[in-house]
Amino acid sequence: MSELLQFVLSGVTVGAIYAAVALGFTLIYNASGVVNFAQGEFVVIGGMTAAALIALGVPVIIAAPLAVIAGTLVGIALYRLAIKPAGKAPLVSLVIITIGASIFLRGVMQVVFDKQIHRYEGFSGDDALRFLGATLLPQSLWIIGGSFVVFAALAWFIGHTHAGRGIRATASNRFAAVLVGINTGRAMNLSFALSAGIGALAGVLATPVTFTSYDAGVLMALKGFSATMLGGVGSPAGALVGGFAIGLIEAMTAGYISSDYKDAAAFIVILLVLFVMPQGLFGRRTTERV
């Protein structure tokens, strides 16, 4: 029983991270229709920047916000320098651009930082808490708590502010949004910034538990994708549920089947979703418009 609880706790911890990645995907996808393959890199930029600053002796309370700002700036740069100039490029070109951008960012991180695996001490130390026979790192609570704060803040921002409504209008129908005078360019900028910021924050919170390295982004993106697809592409609620589900599935696979193949779980989920229910759990069944 305590074994199962242990797996659930670790599943929920990584699940919170995947949910944040999936939410980042959904933000960008809804606003711009772009499937951002560089989403995992935002997480790594957050983690690596924080690790480098902390290694230089900067206190966590300053390093963490700086890392999130760095990620956000990279997100804005991605939109301004790669997505926007491509204009009305076909879907395939946009996919290639975001893949190229993700590889490019990897290379930059390899040069700016290094090829080592990094971590730093958890925000509240590394002494495990005991809980019904299972152990839990205090950092896990930071991760889970942090992601819920982010989700709530985002829901409020999107639902109740002027800029947030602009994003929603742009997502719903870009052309109509332009017609009623919404600055869709600003909405897109904001979506990329928010998405990257959320990713970077997830990286900052997660690194003490999951570790990070310059090339960790692809796997993170793959898990985020499978969370998004399980939840239903385009649905923020689906992204959350999908993220936690993928985290739990992965933890159970590692615990009961084989830790060698825990990363395969995400891929199997993608295939099953595509085979059985392409619209995901919360996605709308859409008819393609011609």
Partner: peptide, 16 residues
């Protein structure tokens, strides 16, 4: 040495 930067840069630059 800079394989990632070169490949990624080439992809984005060509597409744009």
């Amino acid at each position: 040495e800079y394989e990632h930067i070169v490949l990624g840069g080439v992809m984005v630059a060509t597409m744009v």
